[in-house]
Computed example of a mutant assay.
Amino acid sequence: MNDFFTAEDSGPVRVRMPGEPPLGAPSEASVQLELRRLPARLKECSAPQMSLNAARSDRHAPGLKRLQLLCANGQRHIVSVRMERFAWRQSTPQPLASGTPLAPARLTPVLTPLGKLRGNGFESAAALSGYEVRRRLRAGEVITRNSVRAIPLVNFGDTVTYQVSGTGFSMQRSARALEAGGLDERIRIELAPGDWVRARVIGPRRVAP
């Protein structure tokens, strides 16, 4: 069945029966079709071809597509498939409380239907380095941008080092943080009473323009 379908950006499409485990590995991009109502006589079909105009919605099962397969001996078979794009995304096998740092040991990749995912997920555990849980996560929940935040490297009221560098010079001075922020986030800092600027967090209690 895999030969009947191709994906422009991901190569061959993988076909699996309902209830079968995910195909492929987390390192592979994957587009998978969930096959429904496979005709028992399909194995007798020689040199099958998919009808060019047969793909249409299945009125008996919304969300499915009906495909007509034409055999060399003139037989015709109707196959219903659920066409869904899947990709590997990071999830948490155990519940995590708000504020929990995200480490690789707390993450596991799961094959996720992208059409049902709210927000973009994370493809690798490394991409979550420096993040913590924004809200409580359920066991098995896919981690999205909305459910995490950068771990604060600067807290409100901290004395920070404001570092300015240029061609042939480098200078730094102390300032007070008026906001908390994680890596690469921009926060307000006070250089002197009433004199504040925005700066980018570059490390623990360190900021730059």
Rank of each mutant, 00 (worst) to 15 (best):
S10I: 02
H60T: 14
E44S: 14
A47W: 13
R14P: 00
R205G: 09
G194N: 10
M17Y: 02
V31N: 13
S27P: 00
L102V: 03
G181N: 06
R76E: 13
A127S: 15
A175Q: 00
S30R: 15
V207S: 05
P209A: 12
E132D: 11
E185T: 04
S57V: 13
R16Q: 05
A150H: 12
V197G: 06
E141N: 03
S147Y: 03
A7N: 13
G181A: 03
P93G: 10
V201E: 02
L96Q: 14
P18N: 04
A72F: 08
I189D: 07
G130R: 03
M1W: 09
V110D: 09
T144E: 07
R136Q: 13
Q172R: 12
G11M: 10
V31Q: 13
R205Y: 01
R206K: 13
L70D: 14
R200W: 01
P22M: 04
E185S: 02
P209D: 07
P21V: 02
K43V: 15
S165V: 08
M50Q: 13
N73C: 08
V207P: 06
V142A: 08
S174M: 11
R118F: 04
A139M: 08
I151R: 15
V142L: 06
R56I: 03
Q90G: 03
S30V: 15
L191H: 07
G166C: 03
T100H: 07
P12V: 01
G168F: 02
D184N: 12
G182A: 05
G63L: 09
E20D: 12
L64S: 03
V31Y: 03
E8L: 07
Y162C: 08
S91E: 11
G74K: 14
W88V: 02
A127T: 08
T144H: 04
V201Y: 07
P26Y: 02
A150G: 14
S27H: 13
A47C: 11
Q68P: 05
Q172P: 00
S124L: 11
R205D: 00
N2Q: 14
N73M: 08
A175W: 10
G19H: 09
E44N: 15
P39I: 14
R136C: 01
D195W: 09
S170K: 05
G130H: 07
D58I: 00
E179W: 05
G19N: 02
R173Q: 14
R76D: 08
S80Q: 09
T144I: 04
A47S: 14
S98D: 04
A208I: 01
R66S: 15
V81S: 01
D184G: 00
S124H: 13
L33C: 05
S57T: 14
G121T: 08
V160S: 09
P93V: 06
A139Y: 09
S30E: 14
E190T: 00
I189W: 00
S98M: 11
G115K: 09
R85T: 11
E179R: 01
L64W: 11
A29Y: 06
L33K: 10
A139I: 06
R82F: 09
H60Y: 11
A127L: 08
A105C: 00
R198F: 00
Q94D: 15
T6P: 02
T100F: 03
V160D: 06
A54Y: 10
G182K: 01
T144K: 04
D158C: 00
R106S: 14
A180W: 02
S91T: 12
S10N: 02
T112C: 07
